[in-house]
Design a protein around this nucleic acid. Structure first.
Lengths: 87, 87
DNA sequence: TCTTTGTTCAACCAATCGGTTGACAATCGC
DNA sequence: GCGATTGTCAACCGATTGGTTGAACAAAGA
């Protein structure tokens, strides 16, 4: 029942695997496989994390052949930052 | 098994009740009861949220008679903000 | 002292989380 | 077409979450 935007953003950021994926994406677009590769984890597991990030609006995907290329979207990070900056 | 500081901070922030408590604390120190009062929730429930915030280092408490006065501690927010600002 | 107030604790519950496996679909290279 | 690559989905698992109730406790006030 997580409906608030800040909820999903902060929740997505609360996992080190997902933060690592975002850090990786900051260096350039990556496929789901490339994103999951550094984290000894099954493909499906990585796919789930990517879906959480996508659900939070932190990334967007584009199909390129059989790969799913992910790109960082900073807008929700900005929102989260604005919230933090209240203090 | 959440051992990373950013993990606990972002997790604490991912709940609207806890964000509300922090916002409330930003206006001045409050007891646990005062913090929980706006959120239709049992006393024990509010106490748990406060404990999460305390565990994340976002607040500190001081005993004043039978009340527990909570005060905002911004240091972990700063850390979280620094992380966000990488992008 | 007895009662009230403020708070925590322990036990429990349903829901969610992070992860797995196995089956499947789509696309590429041969 | 065949096989390998890339990824999703559904089902399951154990651990954790957010919440409840009820008992307990500590301090203040009568």
């Amino acid at each position: 029942m997580v409906d608030n935007r800040l909820d999903t953003t902060f929740h997505a950021l609360s996992d080190p695997t997902r933060r690592g994926m975002l850090a990786s994406l900051a260096l350039g677009d990556k496929s789901v496989g490339e994103l999951g590769e550094p984290f000894a984890m099954s493909f499906a597991g990585a796919s789930k994390h990517v879906k959480v990030l996508e659900g939070a609006g932190l990334i967007e995907r584009r199909k390129s052949g059989r790969k799913q290329i992910c790109r960082l979207k900073a807008a929700p990070l900005k929102e989260a930052d604005d919230w933090l900056r209240q203090w």
